[in-house]
Simulated assay, not measured.
Amino acid sequence: MSGDHAHVQEFFTARAAGWDARFPDDGPAYAAAVEAIGLRSGDAVLDAGCGTGRALPALRTAVGPDGMVLGVDLTPAMLESAVRAGRDRSGLLLLADVARLPLRSGALDAVFAAGLISHLAHPGPDLAELARVVRPGGQLALFHPVGRAALAARHGRPLTEDDLRAEANLRPMLARSGWRLDAYTDVDDRFLALATHTA
């Protein structure tokens, strides 16, 4: 395991048990973000870096009983918390690295990723791996239940121009990784970037 991965696992392992209790009111924001993807009944969707699986019920609702919902996370403790919360009933949980997904190319219709991008060791290549597993024309949603400025304030740090999620940085990085940024929202109570896989 790389040092980057060990750091991410250590960070989330320490916080897994109390994660949902820290953010009890985020459910509607997750549901609204999932709705924005435009998933259809029968679609196959991945929650990349699913954590405790807060998006899985909304993803299951969106794709219906015939759809496929996968949740992938690097940290066993987060997946264990998802199971304790019963969210494994909404999708299949996999312990895996989003940089090396155990999925065939073009297998999915969409990827949902909440809070993922700031934890990627190699954002460009990792976003390209997400593109690999999505069919041409499929969707990517990069989400956070608070915007960049509000998140920076919460952590007591300034908002900087080198933030990967700033539109000026995110748009070209997505383009190099096989994605076209279609919509970008960054307000106090929501960050949501929607992109399409360009073949």
Rank of each mutant, 00 (worst) to 15 (best):
M1F: 09
D4G: 15
H5I: 04
A6W: 03
Q9A: 11
Q9E: 15
F12L: 06
T13Q: 14
T13V: 09
R15G: 05
A16I: 09
A17T: 09
W19C: 11
D20L: 10
A21Q: 12
F23P: 00
F23Y: 15
P28I: 07
Y30P: 00
A31H: 11
A32W: 00
A32V: 02
A32K: 00
V34Y: 00
V34Q: 00
E35W: 04
A36M: 02
R40L: 05
R40W: 01
R40A: 13
R40E: 09
R40H: 12
S41L: 14
S41R: 14
R54F: 03
L56E: 02
P57C: 04
A58E: 06
V63F: 01
P65N: 05
D66T: 14
G67I: 02
M68E: 13
M68F: 12
L70Q: 01
G71W: 01
G71N: 05
G71E: 06
L74N: 04
T75M: 06
P76K: 08
P76H: 11
A77I: 03
E80N: 13
S81I: 04
V83G: 10
A85F: 03
G86K: 08
R87D: 02
R87W: 04
L93Y: 11
A96V: 08
A96F: 11
D97C: 10
D97L: 10
L101I: 13
P102G: 10
L103H: 04
L103D: 14
A107D: 05
A107R: 07
A107I: 04
L108R: 04
D109K: 08
S118I: 09
H119M: 12
A121E: 15
H122F: 09
H122T: 09
H122L: 10
H122R: 15
P123T: 08
P125A: 06
A128V: 08
A128F: 03
E129D: 12
A131G: 11
A131R: 02
V133Q: 01
F143S: 02
F143T: 02
H144V: 10
A149N: 05
A149L: 15
R154E: 13
H155T: 03
G156V: 01
R157H: 13
P158E: 07
T160H: 10
T160M: 13
E161F: 05
N169M: 09
L170M: 05
P172E: 07
P172N: 07
A175R: 14
R176N: 10
R176T: 14
S177I: 04
G178D: 14
R180H: 12
A183V: 10
Y184K: 13
V187Y: 08
R190K: 06
L192E: 07
A193G: 02
T198G: 08
T198Y: 06
T198V: 15
A199Q: 07
